[in-house]
């Protein structure tokens, strides 16, 4: 890629790179803090202040975490609902988004409007619970995957992405004898890898962060995902949200809370770097030519 090296370009690049590095550093700060506290000894933390590097290293928090099997079990639950749930999401969402991207489809506008409507109005917690219960989903992990199989937001934006794929590519596939279903899976989806990666990420993070539906739909605490525990340990410790009449909850030390945050966050953080190659420029064209 030849680049004309004018002075203007140089300045542009240098400013851009510097700014990005700066933003990156500022953004990573909270996590560095969380990470550092989790490795610091409680006595050091008690002295207060912003800790960005442990002065007195301590693995006590992690020892505590690993001494309980609850965290591992809920981690497995989280991984399961994230993987299976995201697969269901992507399948259902792309199946629905593709037809809606076709401007000639009869009734399309009505359906889109109906979908949009659900983004604004909802029946609320109790009626939804009744539906989930009537479907026989309560007390199973399906209750965390099926009731949110399609996000209206993702559906609408994905539809928009699909619309931008040139029609010519699809037509040629149709001439080869593919039905619409075939076109979606053989042509459109491979061309939409950036979009798939994006919405896959959105859905995966959504599943990973679920805690309220778990509490609502599931009675067996062995089926709780990691976020339920995280909330239990971290949010309540702050004592500002939740039932104030319950004041005898055991409050874990800050170091353990931070270690739990690290434990519960790192797996989902690792997802993004793996998806990044799909965001590389020109993916679409490359795959078509090749």
């Amino acid at each position: 890629m030849l680049q004309d090296k004018t002075i203007g370009n140089r300045i542009f690049d240098i400013t851009n790179y510097t700014l990005l590095i700066l933003i990156g550093l500022i953004c990573v700060l909270p996590f560095v803090y969380v990470l550092a506290v989790s490795f610091t000894s409680p006595a050091e933390v008690a002295k207060g202040g912003l800790i960005l590097w442990p002065k007195e290293w301590s693995l006590a928090s992690y020892r505590y975490i690993f001494s309980t099997d609850t965290l591992f079990r809920s981690m497995l639950v989280s991984i399961y609902i994230t993987v299976v749930g995201t697969f269901i999401n992507l399948l259902f969402t792309s199946l629905m988004a593709y037809p809606l991207a076709k401007a000639t489809l009869r009734g399309r506008q009505f359906i889109l409007l109906a979908v949009l409507f659900t983004m604004l109005f909802g029946g609320g917690m109790i009626p939804t619970y009744f539906v989930v219960k009537a479907m026989g989903l309560t007390n199973s992990l399906w209750s965390l995957m099926i009731p949110n199989a399609i996000s209206a937001f993702n559906l609408i934006v994905l539809k928009n992405f699909f619309q931008q794929i040139p029609d010519g590519l699809e037509d040629s596939a149709r001439i080869d004898g593919c039905t619409d279903v075939g076109v979606l899976f053989r042509i459109v989806l491979p061309l939409s890898m950036p979009a798939m990666a994006t919405f896959g990420l959105f859905y995966a993070v959504g599943h990973w962060n679920q805690f309220f539906s778990a509490i609502l739909y599931i009675n067996d605490s062995r089926l709780y995902p990691i976020q339920v525990l995280l909330r239990q340990i971290v949010i309540l410790a702050q004592g500002s949200i939740g039932d104030t009449s319950i004041d005898n909850v055991e409050i874990q030390p800050l170091t353990i809370r931070m270690a739990v945050i690290v434990f519960a966050t790192v797996p989902i953080l690792l997802v993004y770097p793996f998806l990044q190659k799909h965001f590389a420029k020109g993916v679409m064209l490359g795959s078509v030519k090749g």
Partner: peptide
């Protein structure tokens, strides 16, 4: 029942 959803769960 975890505290973060206790009241809602009871209502349901």
């Amino acid at each position: 029942i975890p505290n973060s959803g206790y009241d809602e769960k009871i209502n349901v």
